[in-house]
């Protein structure tokens, strides 16, 4: 008698705990720009543990994700690598007006897996000491576009043009350089920082005045308009804790913008 009462009490307590969790644990589908992959994978478990919601990210170049959303891809949130595509989505009625905000400002870095090759400057680009320079496809990937702007600014575009190889997105540009098939690559600072220290090779952090700022915008999509989880994630993304982490991982975070 005594023990069965205890079991009853315990199960009641258990039921209460379950009810105390968010009313409904939702599944949230996000389109995430490739450069943010490592950061997202660090952030996701923190969010999931705190809220009980599940995150299902799809990674790709911003342009590709944009094209998919235009064709009805089932995403609730877009984390873009620029501040253009979100606006286009709002204009076409697929994004929620006023939901957009800059969650991170990316930095471009010229990187080589070889420890000695890039001596902290862009001089290597004018030399003959490399055969291939990997970038992300500038038509779809904002980091690729920033790489082209940087080369043009340095007046090196014409001389390195024949050495350019394009990754489908910035993750592939990283992979081309990481595997050594391209000696040099323009990648995201955050991608480089996510690598183990021994594999970080040599790099040159591109000064921000050499390209348009890489202002990465988050936007709530129409399909996520009524989602508690989506709102919770967007709040989480601009919380002081998240911003501090992003800074540590290689992103600048803009001054708090009122939403």
């Amino acid at each position: 008698m005594n023990s069965s009462l205890r079991i009853l009490l315990r199960s009641l307590l258990g039921a209460l705990l379950v009810l105390a969790l968010p009313l409904r644990a939702e599944e949230l589908r996000l389109a995430v720009a490739s450069n943010f992959t490592a950061a997202f994978q660090q952030l996701a478990p923190r969010f999931e543990q705190a809220t009980g919601h599940r995150l299902k990210p799809s990674f790709g170049s911003t342009g590709k994700l944009y094209a998919q959303i235009r064709q009805g891809a089932p995403f609730e949130i877009l984390l873009a690598a620029d501040d253009q595509h979100g606006k286009l989505l709002i204009e076409s009625g697929l994004g929620v007006p006023g939901s957009e905000f800059i969650y991170a400002v990316g930095r471009l870095v010229l990187w080589s897996a070889q420890p000695e090759l890039v001596g902290g400057s862009h001089e290597i680009l004018a030399s003959e000491r490399f055969r291939r320079l990997a970038i992300a496809n500038p038509l779809t990937a904002p980091y690729g576009a920033a790489a082209i702007q940087t080369l043009e600014h340095l007046e090196l575009y014409d001389s390195v043009r024949d050495k350019l190889v394009q990754g489908e997105n910035i993750a592939q540009a990283l992979q081309f350089t990481y595997s050594g098939n391209a000696e040099l690559g323009f990648i995201a600072w955050a991608q480089l920082k996510a690598l183990p220290a021994k594999q970080q090779g040599s790099f040159w952090l591109v000064p921000e005045d050499l390209h348009e700022p890489i202002r990465q915008e988050a936007i709530l999509l129409r399909q996520g308009e009524d989602s508690q989880a989506a709102r919770a994630f967007l709040d989480f993304l601009q919380s002081p804790q998240t911003r501090a982490l992003l800074k540590e991982w290689g992103y600048d975070t803009p001054e708090a913008e009122p939403r």
Binding site: R132, V165, Q166, A182
Partner: peptide
């Protein structure tokens, strides 16, 4: 080709 081509 997508994996080894580099879109040149």
């Amino acid at each position: 080709i997508l994996m080894i081509g580099g879109n040149i």
